[in-house]
Design a binder for these strands. Structure first.
Lengths: 195, 195, 195, 195
DNA sequence: GATGAATGAGGCTTCATTCAT
DNA sequence: CATGAATGAAGCCTCATTCAT
């Protein structure tokens, strides 16, 4: 049994180094050293530093999407599905702070700019799930009449900000708080029953 | 009247180049050229590239804070003051997309990591204004009982996400939409007077 | 019957790759791939890349010399033997452009510099044949009184230049032209019997 | 008075190193050291190693062409002009063996391949002079009826071969010999007055 | 103060060669 | 014998910073 697949080692080393020091503070030589391989070895698995960075992004994204799909309460009411999605993502990223940090950096770099809208939840998978919720919600007049991008921002914007604070130790996001926060997000997009 | 203060020229050139190409895509030599000065000249005004970057951040922050203070309806009700703050910031950043882009990059770089909590509204100034609103709001039971960091994220998180979309052209933030969005933010932090 | 001797495959692959891209555009790994063997395998047959290159040179040289010997009209008059030699070489290299390209590259590289005089026809074999012609020719006062190196250059120099043009498609060397050219070469070394 | 223009120093160092060791045996770092400058300095004058190599080629070519033009006996008979051209080139390259070695290497590399026909005498200048001689010579039926490329090869091919031998010390090209050789070249292209 | 040529450390990448399987 | 993953030295180039003018 091989515990160490070199490709995986490189990705992990890159993840750690890049989240800690940024793309430009993570030379290939250092990534190699941290991964326990020679510098040249990285190039057997990744065409270039850019490719390594892009590939790592893709892998993390896949894992995140998988985490969101897993346990998604398809048949349940709108609100419940929405709360699940936000909560699951929040929990995943709290459990994997490096993933969060990496994704954040990626989107704020020339790499991620081409990804635009397909951001944190870019993969068709989870993105569509969310969009379905929004669509259905607006049709049923449960959710405010907003462009999807606005709903998206209201739903996920706070999370990013909160995760940073959590990682930096400014707040502790325990289960109770997470629940309250997801509900607050729901409040921002749900229609006010002015009736 | 000095139309061209070299220091200002350098800052402006740095702003444009860095927002367009990132910190590492903006060599000092190019900044100098764009600013119409010699490379060495920059070092008369800034100790190093890092200092230039930090200084630029500080200047932008100052201007943003000033913009928020200006016209702030001190004596008015809580909700109105809150809406004003969010709306003013949104409007300022829409009017100054480079400022937004720069601040975003800054926070997502090793530079910004040391800034922690003091983010977009880091300067005591505006930050305090907002914190006062939260404090008073919670005391008066108008706003949900949350750690301030959470309230902050609920209030400003969506905005950052929206600004990106706006700058990238995915949505058009006109005055009507801005008003609706700020109200949605308010919905997420205001207490549901179901009692 | 061995259709594929690995050693031969490697030499052929090297020939093709090197003539196409130069010594430095032909990595061992690529030669190996083209030869259908593993990179390490090459080192069973050749001590190093340098040795491979040198060895390939030697093999091509052997084949060229063999081609010249074959059909050489030993008993015939001087002029005829001379014309045969030039013509045969020209025809061989036209038929094997890769051989020509390789030899050319070889001589113009640090490898070939150590080969000095032993150039295209370096191997004692054909070289001697030519030298005999020159010697006899001078003795019989049919050929100009020149150092052998000069006669050699007059005889073969034009050919190299022409082959390049032919390979590059600037001229088409058909049989008629070849005959005329070999005669022109003869003109340059044959004594003008003006006396 | 500046004896050392850094650009010139770099070109000279490159010339020496490349002729001695080939393009790939002449690292930029070494060229820099030999030129007495820092590695990075080269890039102020040349965009890349390729550009340096190409530029050096151009400069040498210019000098050679200038040497050929200088003293060219425009008004004199065809034969004299031809002999002058060959002789002048031969003399120039004997006096500047590094130039010859460099040009040779250049043409036998991927760089020079794109130069094709425009070889040693590529610059319109001298090339045209030669072509004019050929054209006029054929019209006046003084020169054999050959494609220009063939005449060119007959005229210059031997020279290249001879220069190598000279540089390697196999022969000594003194003025007497040079004159005889140029005449031999003339013999190869001039029409045989079979009349 | 201003200039910009010069510096040289450091980054990314290639590739000949080795060696465990 | 053959394999091909791994190695790491070495090459090209960039760019923040300095300093003589």
């Amino acid at each position: 049994m091989k515990t160490s697949d070199k490709r995986t080692d490189v990705l992990q080393a890159a993840l750690e180094l890049i989240t800690e020091r940024g793309f430009h503070g993570a030379p290939m030589a250092e990534i190699a050293k941290k991964a326990g391989v020679a510098a040249g070895t990285i190039y057997r698995y990744f065409e270039s530093k850019d490719m390594l960075i892009t590939e790592l992004h893709r892998e993390l994204e896949d894992r995140i999407v998988a985490a969101l799909r897993d346990g998604y309460p398809s048949g349940r009411p709108l609100r419940e599905r929405f709360l699940y999605l936000i909560g699951a993502l929040l929990r995943y990223l709290i459990a994997h702070p490096l993933h969060f940090r990496y994704m954040e950096q990626y989107f704020n770099s020339p790499y991620g700019i081409s990804l635009h809208r397909d951001r944190l939840l870019g993969k068709p998978g989870s993105h569509d799930i969310l969009m379905d919720i929004f669509k259905q919600g607006m049709e049923e007049r449960v959710i405010k009449e907003f462009p999807k991008a606005v709903l998206f921002s209201l739903a996920f914007g706070p999370m990013i900000s909160l995760l940073r604070d959590h990682i930096l130790g400014f707040i502790v996001l325990d289960d109770t708080l997470i629940e309250q926060i997801t509900e607050a997000c729901w409040d921002s997009i749900k229609r006010n029953n002015t009736a």
